[in-house]
Computed example of a mutant assay.
Amino acid sequence: MVGRIGRPHGVRGEATVELRTDDPDARFVPGAVLRTDPAERGPLTVAGARWHREVLLLAFEGYDSREAVETLRDTLLEVPVADLPALDDPEAFYDHQLVGLATRLPDGTPLGEVTAVRHEGADLLVVARPDGGELLVPFVTAIVPTVDLAGGLVVVDPPEGLLDL
């Protein structure tokens, strides 16, 4: 996911976008085609992009009014995995690579499964616990020393008390 459509801006069919990409100026160029979730709302073609203060505003082909753009609110914007550039840093991962991985403590005790990655100032792994609860794990090397994509595993070495939250 590279973004989420927010509220309409103005009356000419622009929408605010909650960014989930570190290169929005390259990702949201006019003519870019984005998949959507839910899929029936797309694909969407970017007709225009501009910054208003610190908020990215996008216009989409075929959506030229405030009312039309309102129908897209909360739509997730995605790009095909094949279109993503390779990451140079071996310790960097795309969110989709982490979702679905099993999590274990260093001693092998299962913690659950990564269901999402949140970017809220710090990156957090959302782990669904076997008991039905949810655990938020700061995605930093000190707490997540191992990510084994091939093995489908994330090792979590939590500081004291993290598992009790």
Rank of each mutant, 00 (worst) to 15 (best):
M1V: 13
M1N: 08
V11T: 11
E14K: 09
A15L: 09
D23N: 11
P24S: 12
R27P: 01
R27F: 01
F28V: 02
G31D: 07
L34I: 04
P43A: 06
A47W: 02
A49P: 03
A49F: 00
W51A: 01
R53P: 01
R53C: 06
L58W: 02
G62W: 02
Y63A: 08
Y63F: 14
D64V: 14
T75E: 01
V79Y: 02
D83I: 04
E91G: 05
E91W: 07
Y94W: 12
H96M: 11
Q97N: 06
V99L: 09
L101H: 02
P106C: 08
T109W: 04
T109H: 05
T109I: 14
P110N: 05
G112M: 01
V114W: 02
V114M: 03
T115N: 07
A116R: 14
A116M: 10
A116G: 15
V117P: 04
G121H: 11
G121P: 10
R129W: 01
G132P: 03
G132E: 06
G132Y: 01
V140I: 15
V140R: 14
P145R: 06
P145E: 07
V155T: 12
D157V: 09
G161F: 13
L162D: 15
L162A: 14
L162I: 11
L165H: 13
L165M: 15
